[in-house]
Amino acid sequence: MKTYIILLILFSSFIITSCKTTKDFTKTKNSLEELKNNQEFDCQKDNIKSAEDLYKEASELQKKGDDDKAEIKIMAANEIIKMVKTKKCPKKEKVINNDTPQEVKEKKDNFKPNISEIKDPANENISLKVVSNYNPETIYFAFNSYQISEDAQKILLKHLDFLIANPQVNVKIGGHTDKRGSEEYNLILGEKRALVVKDFFISQGIPKERIEITTYGEEILADTGNTEEAHAKNRRVEFKFILSE
């Protein structure tokens, strides 16, 4: 009799724990779906992806019966989801593009891109056909930073307008660093700079297919000097606007 009671207790506690975990899983899954479908969180897709990865790992672990580890993973995923939910991406400001659809169309019709061929700065065997009659103003960053400054944001909005008005034009974003620090770290820093710009364009509704990023790290310097001024000129993201094929 005693044994039955113990077994019963064990069994019910098993049901309770598994119910709890399953409930958590469904909740996490729903939250993830919600976040993925909500454009307000587009700029945080990396975070959402990490949470999703954790969720997948947790599901795997649960299937294997490792509930403890699964729960840890699902808790971590929930933490990320909570963090993502607190930070909505900046909304597309109406002010930047208050043209009526008709005006946008006119701009598009008025603008006839001139194309010139240039060599890829990292490989002379590759040619790029870039739009030469639009000023692809460069944006600059602080040392070891990939935060978009206010000045940079203004330029990005101009480029955004241009991309919206010219759907036939794609953008190639090149991330650069100054020459201090290791080459390898500078490659990933340059990439992160390009990535935050890409995320900004995506958050403003530019399809990711129209955006390509490349990091050049410290390989292509705008200024080879050793002054702070020279370094500042090198910490940049450059734009190349290319006619889509």
Binding site: D46, S50, E184, L187, I188, L189
Partner: peptide, 9 residues
């Protein structure tokens, strides 16, 4: 590695 920071070298 798995985080939002830069990991390398």
């Amino acid at each position: 590695t798995k985080n939002l920071a830069l990991d390398t070298s």
